[in-house]
Design a protein around this nucleic acid. Sequence first.
RNA 1: CGUGGGGUAGAGCAGUCUGGUAGCUCGUUAGGCUCAUAACCUAGAGGUCGGAGGUUCAAAUCCUCCCCCCGCAA
Length: 313
Amino acid sequence: MNVVFMGTADFSLKGLVALCENHCNVIAVYTQAPKPSGRKQKIHKSAVHEFAESKGIAVFTPKSLKKAEQIEIFASLKPDLAIVSSYGLIIPQNMLDIPKYGFVNIHASALPRWRGAAPIQAAILAGDKQTGITIMKMDAGVDTGDIISMQYVDITSKTNHGQLSEDLGNLGAKMIIETLSDLDNLLANAQKQPNEGATYAQKISKESCKIDWNNSTTDVLRHIMAFSPAPGAWSEVDGLRIKILDADVVSASSNFEISAANIGEIFENKGEMFVVCRDGILKITKIQPAGKNAMNGSDFLRGRKNLVGKIFS
RNA sequence: CGUGGGGUAGAGCAGUCUGGUAGCUCGUUAGGCUCAUAACCUAGAGGUCGGAGGUUCAAAUCCUCCCCCCGCAA
């Protein structure tokens, strides 16, 4: 069976790797076009792109799939099945119709919750206790297709975006292999996806990564975990831009004197770093000032004692 | 040639402008104090100051080139 893989994010790479390891005939890979990125504005290829090239698989990087020309190219590959995993482009109906088995999508949430662009972050931000992977048939809507299979992954207060992406990537890879092993049957038995309970994950922006210390400790912590390690929840103090990559809620039973009263104020206790939120205190355990590598909170404070008493804004 | 910061002991930093014996906090090692300790006291170990040239009596510091890390922006 000829398979075309479409994906861009690191999350999707695991699926492609699994397909190759399981001797699927991946005839082509679609991924977002390399564009100038990074510090020197160098052209960077996506991880999917690099991997596909290393395997000698043909790579296509159209900027849009809507043009007739792209439809023709796709058709000429004579695909039997297309697998999509956080690819980033909308696939038009007349392309969806081409493969005999259609398009199958690996989506990083338990649909219909968190349809859309950033489902992993959305689940953490919302405080969901679970999220998952949904394998579904694609239709013209945004993540509205019939569900082939779904499996769940737990989210705890210590689950960050990086870890969850990796776990979901592994799960997605495993599930897509299982799907292929029984494709006819599973496709025939796919369940209609309910619209009830559907939510949409907004794309994340730089501004939405900024920490609002006026929120509760739980909300601030979720915010931190949802964007860690990248792009990183951030805040500013003393003109310095700082990313907070990991933290803990200080439990109410911890009995140390809180001398700091202002929201966003930094204070120190036994060498550890703490910040005041609306309803409590967060211990900062991993932090990255602009221009430096990530370090733990106490190391950060050691060299910058002058920041104690300053307010994050 | 998008743009800014950084590389000094295991960690985080000061020192660089204005050249003159390598510092601080923490950790670590040994000893002491203590009912006890993450507390305190004493002593010690630990550095090619990112690399290579150059200037100089003398370079972490000034000049040139290179390597690496990171922030912003895309």
